[in-house]
């Protein structure tokens, strides 16, 4: 389980999450609690039937998600609906999509009811953002992280 990940991984993810917290504040909104990256990591367990951070599964990998255009990851067979999306994945677009995937992108292959709780979405998105600093994502894309 992720809960037993190495201490180094946890620290790196946590540090990255804290570093990203300021930019996420805009999504969290004034007066809202800062996102909890560790809770987001636990919530990510829900995703792992179809997703993995560093490799494509039933769904696409999540390393490098932030800043990627929707439906553009090379080598993954996205639905036509997702490929037609003009979105770039960021906290706002992920929040909209995760709340109700099929309503946000009708025809998406992500046939999942969504995460209704806004706080859970914030925490999960914070984790997804922090994921890029994890060793598994760095190992999966060394060139990008050497830049």
């Amino acid at each position: 389980m992720w809960a037993r990940a190495s201490g180094r991984l946890w620290c790196q993810v946590l540090i990255a999450g804290l570093a990203a917290a300021a930019s996420i504040t805009a999504v969290a909104g004034p007066g809202q609690q800062a996102p909890d990256v560790l809770r987001g990591e636990q919530l990510y367990g829900r995703c792992m039937g179809c997703h993995a951070p560093a490799y494509d599964s039933v769904g696409p990998r999540h390393c490098g998600l932030f800043g990627r255009r929707a439906g553009s990851l090379p080598g993954y067979a996205f639905s036509a609906a997702m490929k037609a999306q003009p979105w770039v994945w960021n906290a706002a677009t992920l929040d909209r999509f995760l709340a109700a995937p099929l309503a946000a992108v009708p025809g998406t292959s992500m046939t999942y009811d969504g995460i209704a709780d806004a706080r859970e979405r914030r925490d999960l998105i914070a984790y997804l953002r922090a994921l890029d600093a994890s060793p598994q994502c760095r190992a999966a894309s060394p060139a990008k992280h050497q830049e």
């Binding site: 389980m1 829900r46 792992m48 039937g49 999942y112 009811d113």
Partner: peptide, 18 residues
């Protein structure tokens, strides 16, 4: 395997209402 099974539970749970 446990990660996949946990994720499968959540995936089916998210699919049932659809």
């Amino acid at each position: 395997a446990a990660r996949l099974e946990q994720g499968a539970v959540s995936a089916y749970l998210g699919a049932v209402p659809l």
